[in-house]
Design a protein around this nucleic acid. Structure first.
Length: 415
RNA sequence: CGGGGUGUGGCGCAGUUGAUAGCGCGCUCGGUUUGGGACCGAGAGGUCGAAGGUUUGAGUCCUUUCACCCCGACCA
């Protein structure tokens, strides 16, 4: 992509109404556009980041036999009445609307009931189980207060997966597999080291749910973690969990964290509430064991920004960055050679953000750094004269001068 | 929803005791520049969140309202 064709413009100052670091940087660098409180649009750059996050999740969900589908944002009132969750007193984040004939509709804040309702059409026999479906979907939640930039919006993208089983044991086994898949996701996002599987409140169906919590100053939760980080407990269930696990609370230290995933088991309760059953080998109707697995895609993006930046701007992990490489041309000969190199790399299937604008070097460097592209190739007149390219790592600032063969060699290793 | 704060060109801001708006960045044009967000000159762009009121006169005062931010509550 040529920078001259990218419509975004970077800003030196963040809008004064944004305090959250993630929103400030993402707006300044041209990744997101704020539409209203808690509602952000994603530019081509921002979309590439989201897609990278989604692709990692997609690969990991597919690896545990998840089948991708997509549900709808418009939901039927009847779907939610079966579990009593249409009531605003029960679910206080509903956005509701009406058809022109006054039929009430809900805008999806969750898809638990919706997925189950759909699956009852297909899951009739024990032969149809287990099965697991997931989607990337925009959730709409009428939060009383949006905050923290893209970390807590009224409209956000979530990956939600649902697994259906004939037995609690089968559900447990699968659940544990998904925990491992989730860990791989966070590792690949580049935040695995600071992300913990955490005991959290279980709600109506199970004693504890599991949250994936990433240590992050901008987070809203407090986590208690033990010495070797093998146990993490959300403050909200600290007493219960400590008792249950036989842990001395004094050995746990509090840290601030952000919830980047939440998984839990419904048992057969949801199935029974909704009257959804399968037929077992003996021809008897049986309730379905259900578990649910969520990752906040847009929140993950926000957490990454919160954790990885410096005074110059964003620092994307390689797997997440919209482009791994940016190419900066300086001077006339530098530009001619940069044009040539851009074509060469593009032809070789290597995606590059090429800053081909007629701007001064300082402007281009500052933009590349603000955008957080992991590597920068600088092609200048003096580089051309020396037959060298400059490769700079965003994170460390380390620079090396490489000849053409060495550069290509290096890039193939990075890709 | 309770408390606090803020709304002036795209962004950041100034506007004194009321006299119908100014600066920086960005943008356009011309020129000089070109390894860390250049410089000079010339321009375009706002009626001051909105509505109502006081006044000869309101960005400045009053009322209402909307939006945004922060703290709290809330957060399968």
């Amino acid at each position: 992509m040529r920078r001259s064709n990218l419509f975004i413009k970077t800003l030196k100052d963040a809008p004064s109404d944004e305090v959250a670091k993630n929103a400030q940087l993402l707006i300044r660098a041209g990744y997101v556009y704020k539409v209203m409180a808690g509602v952000y649009a994603y530019t081509p750059l921002g979309l590439r980041v989201l897609e990278n996050i989604k692709q990692i999740v997609r690969e990991e969900m597919n690896a545990v036999n998840g089948q991708e589908l997509i549900m709808t944002n418009l939901q039927a009132k009847e779907t939610w009445e079966t579990t009593g969750r249409w009531d605003d007193e029960v679910v206080d984040v509903w956005f509701k609307t009406k058809l022109q004939d006054d039929t009430e509709l809900g805008l999806a804040w969750s898809h638990e009931e919706a997925i189950m309702e759909m699956m009852q059409q297909y899951v009739k026999s024990y032969k149809d189980l287990p099965t697991s479906v997931y989607q990337f979907q925009t959730k709409l939640r009428n939060e009383l207060r949006a905050k923290s930039g893209i970390m807590r919006g009224r409209e956000f993208v979530m990956k939600d997966m649902y697994s259906l089983h004939t037995t609690a044991e089968d559900c447990d086994t699968y659940y544990d597999k998904v925990i491992e898949a989730y860990k791989r996701c966070y590792d690949r996002f580049g935040i695995g080291d600071s992300t913990f599987v955490t005991f959290a409140s279980g709600g109506a169906f199970t004693k504890f749910s599991h949250e994936f919590q990433t240590i992050c100053d901008a987070g809203e939760d407090t986590l208690y973690v033990n010495e070797d980080s093998s146990v993490a407990v959300n403050e909200e269930v600290l007493d219960d969990a400590a008792a249950e696990l036989g842990i001395d609370k004094a050995e746990l230290k509090p840290v601030t964290s952000a919830e980047v995933g939440n998984i839990f088991k419904f048992g057969t309760e949801k199935s029974e509430q909704m009257g959804i059953y399968y037929t077992d080998k003996d021809g008897k109707q049986q309730p379905i064991y259900l578990a649910s697995y969520g990752i906040g895609i847009t929140r993950v993006m926000g957490v990454i920004v919160e954790k990885m930046s410096d005074d110059k701007g964003l620092i994307w992990p390689k797997n997440i960055a919209p482009y791994k490489l940016c190419l900066v041309s300086i001077g006339e000969k530098g530009s001619a050679e940069a044009d040539r190199l851009y074509d060469e790399l593009t032809g070789a299937g290597i995606e590059v953000l090429y800053d081909d604008r007629d701007e001064r070097p300082g402007t281009k460097f500052a933009d590349a750094e603000l955008m957080g592209i992991p590597y920068r190739i600088t092609v200048s007149d003096r580089g051309v004269a020396a037959n060298e390219y400059e490769l700079t790592e965003r994170k460390s600032g380390a620079t090396e001068n490489l000849n053409h063969a060495a550069l290509i060699d290096k890039l193939s290793m990075l890709a």
